[in-house]
């Protein structure tokens, strides 16, 4: 069996390795496919659908779809990007995202994607949902107003930390992140050193007393759009 798999994405020939997903192979090749729920150290869930690409004409999540020899992938199409923009737009209005005072601002993946896609104002009406916050843990603060249900914390707690502190409950609009305690986060065995406390792409799970310590201008997405680190690999090659 060959150790190389060749495929084409947006007209560019890419060589990947067996077992890689489209997203992994493209990351290595310096081609950025937008994503939100995907975290490089966690098992991909394919839940946010932001990385949806067309594989031989059929929509697939690039973070879960393995590469195959000769596949033709389309990512940077007008239609796919419009779908991505709509997903981001909907995520913004579905929660209560106030970037202007959110401590994750500048380091937030949702905000950074909003900027990358040129979303200056939401096109849908805000839901203004009533969401719970939990400040009881001595080191960690949960603000469900900002949760986008990506599932990273669920996955990290279960598979990396081996604890299962977080889990989804409810369906559809009622879906939310629950904790494995009667009422409060302080009653779980979550530790600040846990992976689950470190993977939230937005400001829903935050470490207490660390806010705003990085000055504006030095935050992750202050200077370059999200995905630039991946795209720079290609430029160097």
């Amino acid at each position: 069996m060959s150790n190389e798999i060749n495929f084409v994405i947006d007209g560019v020939e890419v060589t990947g390795k067996p077992g890689q997903t489209i997203l992994e192979a493209c990351d290595e090749a310096g081609i950025y496919i937008p994503r939100l729920c995907r975290h490089p150290e966690l098992t991909p869930r394919g839940s946010c659908r932001l990385c949806t690409v067309l594989v031989n004409g059929r929509p697939q999540a690039a973070c879960t779809q393995p590469i195959t020899e000769g596949m033709i992938v389309e990512s940077e199409t007008e239609e796919l990007n419009e779908n991505r923009r709509n997903i981001i737009d909907m995520l913004f209005v579905e929660g209560n995202h106030f970037c202007m005072f959110c401590e994750r601002s500048g380091n937030c993946e949702l905000q950074a994607l909003g900027y990358r896609f040129g979303i200056l104002a939401p096109k849908y009406d805000y839901f203004y949902p009533k969401r719970e916050i939990d400040a009881t843990h001595p080191d960690i603060f949960i603000d469900r107003n900002r949760c986008i249900l990506c599932g990273r914390c669920v996955e990290a707690s279960r598979t990396v930390d081996g604890k299962g502190v977080f889990e989804f409950v409810g369906r559809g609009p009622e879906r939310k992140i629950a904790i494995n305690a009667e009422q409060f986060l302080k009653d779980t065995n979550l530790k600040i050193t846990d992976k689950a406390a470190d993977v939230c792409p937005v400001g829903a799970i935050i470490k207490k007393r660390t806010a705003f310590t990085t000055p504006i201008g030095k935050r992750k997405y202050d200077k370059k759009p999200i995905g630039s680190d991946i795209e720079e690999k290609r430029k160097k090659d």
């Binding site: 202007m100 005072f101 401590e103 400040a135 603060f141 207490k208 007393r209 806010a211 705003f212």
Partner: peptide, 8 residues
Amino acid sequence: PYWEMPVV
């Protein structure tokens, strides 16, 4: 949270 106050 209190650390948000100066910013909010």
